[in-house]
Design a binder for these strands. Structure first.
Lengths: 123, 123
DNA sequence: CTTGACTCTGACGTCTATGTCAGGTTCAGC
DNA sequence: GCTGAACCTGACATAGACGTCAGAGTCAAG
């Protein structure tokens, strides 16, 4: 599968895939002409990368974590790292929930005002 | 209260406070010599700003939202905006939880390997 | 063999909330 | 009135994950 196809399949840009490779998160074989070719499971790998990026991990962190997903083995230091990231995400979730509740509070306590001057209390 | 004191009280940098003012998120009165002075409630305002930033809102979004917190009134379009942000945060929370679970899965299925060669299955 | 779609490698651009540095001013305390 | 700490205004720097453009090469189909 060439890069365009993988991009479409994984729902990311071609540029992103090249970037992942540059960061050593993704590997490819090259055709004699130098074009990238990917294995079938590449889409899964890209999806995992995307998920970790979305969780706020940096390329560097993902690079550390990915090998153990493949090998199924971790060194203790890396296990600590995994747990640390996990906890960081939990903390982030709490932060977001607090902010969401704050917004909810605002939504519920404000009075809606139409341009006509009409007002409406929440609920 | 001067900027340094507010920065300490709110736990942000002086630079950040100047930036907030530049973005019109925060107001200050000036001494004859041009130094900023803040009201007592400024720390609360800064905290709210921080919370919204942490939730992934942009300065522009916060600028739109802040006035209604003060006045207690919103126009319908802004109410929609508030709800949209709220939902965006919810979606972000889901994304994070998925990623966390994914990490948990990795943590639980990998084998810990010490440099001695000793191995240890999870649990 | 031609063509057009696709791909390649640089390399600079972007966006956002600050960090940081320079050169100068203000102010509280003594 | 002095002094040092705190503050002022630019303005350039940063980090990260790409976007985007240029100029050139590759490849499958006809």
């Amino acid at each position: 599968m060439r890069i365009g196809e993988l991009a479409a399949k994984a729902g990311v840009s071609v540029r992103a895939l090249r970037y992942y490779e540059e960061q050593q998160l993704l590997v490819s074989e090259r055709s004699p002409g130098g074009q990238r070719h990917y294995a079938e499971n590449a889409a899964d790998r890209v999806q995992l990368i995307q998920q970790l990026y979305a969780a706020g991990l940096t390329s560097k962190s993902i690079l550390e974590i990915l090998p153990c997903v493949v090998t199924g083995e971790v060194k203790p230091a890396l296990l600590d790292r995994l747990k640390a990231e996990r906890n960081r995400i939990d903390a982030q979730v709490s932060t977001l929930i607090d902010a969401r509740d704050r917004l909810d509070g605002i939504i519920e306590t404000t009075t809606t005002v139409w341009s006509t001057g009409q007002r409406c209390r929440p609920q």
